[in-house]
Structures are given as structure tokens and as C-alpha cells.
Amino acid sequence: MKFLSSLFAFTACGFLAAPVFAAEQAPEPSGCAAKRQDITTQIENAKAAGNTEQQAGLQKALSELNANCNDVDLVKQQEQKVLDAKREVSRRQADLNKAMSKGDPEKIDKRKDKLAESRKELQDEQEKLEKVQPDEDDE
């Protein structure tokens, strides 16, 4: 009898844990699929809030996304944004170096702040690029 109760408990734990393992294995959507999922979630939220104007706008955005979104183009656009952000960081670093050579503490602080801001923007763009790039497992 003790064996049967242990077997039952073990089986029950297995059934309860199965959805957790399944959820861990589901890959996050990327690219157009991620954007589609985001807009769909926003549509559901607008419906729940009774916001018909927002819902209509989101429906239009979803239609345009479905008609025009291409993962390859999306990745290229984001790669360009990353490249632009890298150029901005380089430019800001040069501005800081120039201010440091002149020795003006006020300008140095200002340039440091601008450089930090540009680095943050670069980091944000790189994270966005990671999200839109298709997983290598999908190929």
C-alpha cells in the first residue's frame, strides 16, 4: 500500500511539473513574429480596457505589419541603427578627448555625460538587434 501511495505521489508530481518544463523549452519569438505578438497583446489589452480607438489603430498596425514585415529587412534596419550608434559613440569619444586636451572641467563633464548617453543608446540598439535576429536553431 505504501508503494502505491509513493507511486501516485511521484506520478502526480510528474504531471504537475510537465507544464513548467514545456514552458522553459518554448523559444521566444523574434523579428516579425515578436512584433506581431506584441501588437496582438496590446490589442487584447485595448479590448479589455474598452478602448476602441486604440484597438482600431493597433489593428491597422497589425495589418501593415503582416503586409510589410520581412525578418531580413528588419535585421538589416536594426544592424544599421547599431552601426549609427557606434559612430555616435566614436564621435562623442573624440569630443571628450578634445575637451580633455583643452582641460576645461565643465566641458569634460558635459562630454562625459553625452558619451554615457550614447553608450546607453548603443547598448539598447544592440539588445534590440539580438531580439530581431532569428535564432540559429530555427534555420
Score class of each variant (00 low, 15 high):
44 E>K: 03
44 E>I: 04
44 E>C: 07
45 N>T: 04
47 K>D: 13
50 G>H: 06
50 G>T: 07
50 G>I: 01
51 N>I: 05
52 T>S: 12
54 Q>D: 12
54 Q>H: 03
55 Q>G: 04
56 A>W: 13
57 G>D: 04
58 L>C: 02
58 L>S: 03
62 L>S: 03
62 L>C: 01
64 E>K: 07
65 L>C: 09
67 A>S: 14
68 N>S: 10
68 N>W: 08
69 C>V: 01
71 D>S: 06
73 D>W: 08
73 D>K: 14
74 L>K: 06
75 V>A: 07
75 V>H: 01
76 K>H: 13
76 K>E: 15
77 Q>G: 08
78 Q>H: 02
79 E>R: 04
79 E>Q: 12
79 E>F: 15
79 E>Y: 11
81 K>V: 12
81 K>T: 05
82 V>T: 06
83 L>G: 03
84 D>T: 07
85 A>P: 03
86 K>A: 07
87 R>W: 08
89 V>H: 05
89 V>Q: 00
92 R>C: 12
93 Q>N: 13
93 Q>A: 14
94 A>R: 09
94 A>H: 09
99 A>G: 07
107 K>S: 14
107 K>P: 09
108 I>R: 06
108 I>H: 05
109 D>T: 11
110 K>A: 14
112 K>I: 00
113 D>V: 12
113 D>F: 03
114 K>S: 03
114 K>C: 03
115 L>V: 02
118 S>Q: 04
119 R>P: 06
119 R>K: 14
121 E>C: 00
